[in-house]
């Protein structure tokens, strides 16, 4: 890409000038947009409902938690997850938009992994659902790569100095799933009980999984 200014992009930027003429309340603007698109046949309101429904009931961090729990109890699955996470997660039918190319990164006593998207809000939606507000916020996006230990402390996660931190900045279409460490004292729990312990934050890498 050249460094000259793109005339067409300047035109695109001008499309944002309209904001000063629109109501400040987003609820009003979004309602007007939905009416317009429906009237023009550019959207089917039932399809909007269907998309919302998918993310409210079918796609969420429970999917990722099942992957993690299976990896904890099944060494062969863990090996498949390490060598080709996309395929291993596909076995559980959890691939989908913003989660078709996945790498699983495993926390150990020596290495701790943390996921961020400094440029926008890339997140493994197909296995973790919609990202929390803090993940998309400027404070997290700016400091996760600069001061990961400080960021982790804000989540109450204090790592010893000897642990190596790897921050994964999701700059392309590869999505990262952190496989947290299985807590001690959970040997007697079933795969389902283990999955219930695995939090969203532990699969982003800002928290550890706690024993019940």
């Amino acid at each position: 890409m050249s460094q000259h200014s793109h005339a067409h992009d300047d035109d695109l930027a001008h499309h944002h000038d309209i904001h000063s003429e629109l109501p400040s309340d987003p609820a009003l603007r979004v309602k007007a947009l939905e009416s317009l698109l429906t009237e023009k046949g550019l959207v089917d309101p039932a399809a909007i409902d269907a998309w919302i429904e998918i993310y409210e009931s079918k796609i969420g961090p429970r999917n990722g938690a099942k992957v993690v729990a299976k990896a904890w109890v099944d060494p062969a699955y863990k090996q498949r997850l390490r060598s080709d996470a996309t395929k291993a997660i596909g076995e559980l039918d959890f691939l989908g938009r913003q989660g078709q190319h996945i790498v699983a990164v495993e926390n150990t006593p020596e290495v701790h992994n943390l996921v961020v998207c400094t440029l926008c809000s890339c997140y493994p939606l197909s296995i973790l659902g919609l990202p929390p507000a803090w993940y998309k916020s400027a404070p997290y996006r700016s400091r996760a790569v600069l001061d990961p230990r400080g960021v982790l402390k804000e989540f109450g996660t204090d790592l010893p100095e000897h642990v190596k931190i790897r921050v994964w900045d999701s700059t392309a279409e590869v999505r990262y799933l952190v496989v947290p460490e299985r807590p001690a004292g959970t040997e007697h729990l079933s795969e389902e009980q283990l999955a219930a312990l695995v939090t969203r934050d532990s699969m982003i890498g800002v928290a550890k999984v706690k024993a019940p």
């Binding site: 440029l119 404070p139 989540f155």
Partner: peptide, 11 residues
């Protein structure tokens, strides 16, 4: 392009 900036406050 926010990576490395200061001043955005607590998370």
């Amino acid at each position: 392009d926010m990576g490395g900036m200061h001043g955005h406050g607590p998370i």
